[in-house]
Nucleic acid binder design. Structure first.
Length: 115
DNA sequence: GCTTTGACGTATG
DNA sequence: TCATACGCCAAAG
C-alpha cells in the first residue's frame, strides 16, 4: 500500500543532511507534482516526535514557511544551523544548500548515513 | 458528498 | 522585495 503521505515522508527523509528542499520539490519527488500544499498540510498535522527531518523543507523562495517569530520558526532555524545550513532572517540560500539548484541533485535518494 | 482548509507555487504589477 | 490573485487538490469535518 502506498499512501501519498507515505511517499511524501520518504521524500523528506531522503533529503541529505545539510541540504534543504522546497515543498514543491518534495511533492514532485513523491510523485505528486503540483501538490506542494499537501506536503505542507501533512507536515502541519504530523505530530512532533516523528523522526522526520521536517526542518529541511522550505518554501520555493528559500524562506521558512512557518510564521516568523513562532516557536517552529526558531526551532527550524536552530535545527538547520546545527547541520551547517546558514539561516539568515528565516532565509536560506538555495543556490548553496538547495537540491533544486544546479548542485548535486544526484544526492537525492542517498541515505543520509552514507554521506 | 459538499465545503473548508492549508508549514505552497507561479505570475504579475 | 512586498502584495495580490489565482491555480492546485487531498484530507478533514
Amino acid at each position: 500500500m502506498h499512501s501519498s503521505h507515505q511517499r511524501i515522508y520518504a521524500a523528506i527523509a531522503a533529503i541529505p543532511v545539510g541540504r534543504v528542499a522546497s515543498y514543491g520539490a518534495i511533492a514532485a519527488r513523491a510523485g505528486l507534482p503540483g501538490r506542494a500544499r499537501l506536503v505542507g498540510k501533512l507536515l502541519g498535522q504530523t505530530p512532533a516526535g516523528l523522526a522526520l527531518p521536517w526542518h529541511r523543507v522550505l518554501r520555493a523562495s528559500g524562506r521558512i514557511a512557518l510564521p516568523a517569530g513562532s516557536d517552529g520558526f526558531h526551532e527550524q532555524s536552530r535545527l538547520l544551523r546545527a547541520e551547517g545550513v546558514e539561516v539568515n532572517n528565516g532565509r536560506v540560500a538555495l543556490s548553496r544548500f538547495g537540491l533544486d539548484g544546479d548542485l548535486d541533485h544526484a544526492l537525492w535518494g542517498l541515505p543520509a548515513a552514507s554521506l
